[in-house]
């Protein structure tokens, strides 16, 4: 393994050095490529990751460069993709297993929950599982009920597994590098409609630590807590709230659902005394429910209004474009929720 002494950067705002403009796709691809160049124990396995170049084109060119030993096309077999990656991780490698979409992670649920997340504890810490499971999430692409889930909360339920969900190219690359280098299993969830988004990425080696939230916009009247694709929507809503209503919203990107970094949320709440949580997934047993519960428990004395939640409607997502869009969170719904508690 060649030496790697990255700068640890907690937030894009702190970084003042040289940057390139890159898409989320390219940022993720770069992280994978660089880490495979550095560490022979890192390899990729999954459906269509090799010859095809990845169904979201993240691993395009990898197969030709690294070869079939390190970029391994698998059969359509999610249970064994995750399970075999767990076994390889137990036995000394650092696998990156790709599950094409999080909808198919349900097929591998047992391997993720009972094995990736549990084996270290269950055997008294005899081995670690340095595994990254990369997958894509999100609705809004007219893919119908089975291919449009945003079930991150479900996976974040279980101790032993990290759940990481970037919203920008900067965070995506820095968090993925941390994930690959971490000895815990990490479910790395990429939103399928963010791949084209562009942003600034440092040209120097850097990592973003896991388990730290990031304030994406500072404000003083209300705290909007969110992650992944919903960060974009929350920022849009915050701009409009400022322009149209004179309301100053702070937007916190959780970036990691487990471990959940609640401190910046509480700190912000103690300043604004109001909170709206925006989450693409359903409201029941959700991240938004968790945040609301924790705020009332840990910051009750600072509450000026109930914590509001903007989630996907509590129905399966339909195909028809307008109907599907009406079921998903958007800036209008966020603005309405904020106005309700001001």
């Amino acid at each position: 393994m060649s030496t790697f002494s990255p700068t640890v950067i907690h937030s894009e705002k702190e970084y003042t050095g040289e940057t390139d403009r890159k898409s989320v796709r390219q940022a993720i691809s770069d992280a994978l490529w660089e880490e495979m160049e550095r560490d022979e124990n890192v390899f990729i396995m999954g459906e269509e990751v090799g010859v095809w170049g990845g169904t979201y084109a993240v691993t395009r060119g990898f197969y030709d460069h690294f070869g079939e030993r390190r970029v391994r096309d698998t059969p359509i077999s999610e249970m064994v993709i995750v399970g075999a990656a767990v076994g390889a991780a137990m036995n000394g490698l650092r696998p990156i297993a790709e599950i094409m979409t999080i909808n198919f992670a349900f097929v591998a649920f047992d391997a993720i929950v009972n094995h990736a997340a549990k084996v270290r504890y269950m055997f008294g810490g005899q081995f670690t599982v340095p595994l990254v499971i990369r997958t894509t999430t999100g609705g809004g692409r007219q893919l119908g009920a089975t291919h449009s889930h945003s079930p991150e909360a479900l996976f974040a339920h279980f101790p032993g597994l990290y759940v990481v969900t970037p919203s920008t190219p900067f965070d995506a690359k820095g968090l993925l590098l941390s994930a690959i280098r971490d000895d815990n299993p990490v479910l790395f969830v990429e939103h399928s409609t963010l791949y084209q988004n562009r942003g600034l990425v440092p040209t120097v080696d850097y990592v973003v630590p896991l388990g730290k939230a990031d304030i994406k916009r500072e404000g003083s009247d209300v705290t909007i807590v969110t992650y992944a694709k919903m960060v974009e929507i929350a920022l849009d809503a915050a701009e409009r709230l400022q322009d149209e209503e004179g309301i100053s919203a702070e937007v916190i990107d959780l970036r990691s659902l487990r471990p959940l970094d609640l401190d910046p949320v509480l700190e912000s709440f103690k300043k604004t005394n109001r909170c709206v949580v925006v989450e693409e997934g359903h409201p029941f047993a959700s991240v938004s429910g968790e945040i609301a519960a924790r705020i009332q428990d840990e910051a009750f004395d600072w509450m000026d209004a109930p914590v509001k939640r903007v989630n996907q409607e509590d129905v399966p997502l339909p195909y028809s474009r307008e109907l599907e869009q009406s079921a998903l969170p958007n800036a209008d719904k966020v603005i309405a929720a904020v106005k309700e508690i001001m």
Binding site: V80, G83, A85, G87, A88, N91, L93, D110, A111, F123
Partner: peptide, 21 residues
């Protein structure tokens, strides 16, 4: 590498152990 209590759940792990070697 252990006994596993979900029927068949350790078979993929075995494949992975072998893959690493």
């Amino acid at each position: 590498w252990g006994g596993y209590a979900v029927v068949g759940g350790h078979l993929p792990l075995a494949a992975g152990l072998a893959l690493a070697d």
